Amino acid sequence: MVFDYQLGGPYPPDEAVRAVSRDRTAKPAQGLYNVCYVNAFQSQPGDAVDWWRKHHPELLLKDADGSPVVDEDWDEPLLDLSTPGKRQALMEIVGPWIDGCAKAGHDAVEPDNLDSYERSDGLLTAGHAAAFAELLAERAHSRGLAIAQKNTTDLLPERDRIGFDFAVVEECAAFDECGDFADAYDDKVFAVEYTRKDYAAACRTWGPRLSVTLRDRDVRPAGTKGHVFTHC
């Protein structure tokens, strides 16, 4: 299935496209397989950060000085998954987002930043991430949604226990991970690359098996400067 990654804003998909991922605030694309993007392990930047700080500061991961731990590449504070109680409290917020994906008519959910523990300065572990992902999978399945593993080869051995159904992976050619995901998910993988060199490598090696898409790194909507979309 040709896949389009429309996180920067929805737009009419190319006629070849059969599956699309859009932010949970966007409407699904009519007649296509729709994957609902949810930033489940970190906060969105901007107003969303202020919302967390105002309403749920206890659920933001903090260092020993009490300062939020931030993914500096995206300016996104990490959510605190470190205890069962905090994971359940987070589900009171993230769970309804997943419900909203189902109500809007999406087919699947893509919870992003599964690998946030790698940016937590040792405060979170892969086990914390897997435990929260299991709660997300249970919620998605209970609402009739499939759920994708997003990146993170370290958690591939946990995929069945967690309940992941397929994968959405970024830069698997760049990091030489496409084969790991392809084997784990029996080729049920949407692979997104952000450079033409990596895209060409992915198509050359994995094009016959995987759905490979080239997007601009800011995933800009069609018609805007810098937009890139092609597939193999």
Rank of each mutant, 00 (worst) to 15 (best):
A131C: 07
Q44Y: 14
Q6E: 07
W97S: 08
L81W: 09
D80M: 10
D50L: 13
L59Y: 09
H128Y: 03
G9D: 05
L214G: 00
Y5K: 06
S142F: 14
G163P: 04
Q88W: 06
L78W: 00
V228N: 01
P157I: 12
L78Y: 00
A126C: 03
D65V: 03
A48E: 15
R220F: 11
I162K: 13
N151H: 03
R215S: 15
E171K: 15
V49R: 09
D99C: 09
R87F: 13
A129C: 05
T83K: 01
L90S: 08
W97Y: 15
D65P: 05
S142M: 14
V20H: 01
V168A: 05
V94D: 05
Q88C: 01
R161Q: 14
W51K: 14
L136H: 02
L210G: 00
G122K: 01
F229V: 08
P13Q: 10
V94A: 05
L59N: 03
L59W: 02
D154G: 11
K54V: 11
Q6C: 06
K225C: 09
K62S: 11
R161W: 14
N113L: 07
A108L: 01
L32G: 00
G66Y: 02
Y11W: 01
P13L: 04
A222F: 03
C172H: 12
V192M: 00
R24T: 13
G95H: 07
R24Q: 15
D47L: 10
L79G: 03
S82D: 06
R22E: 04
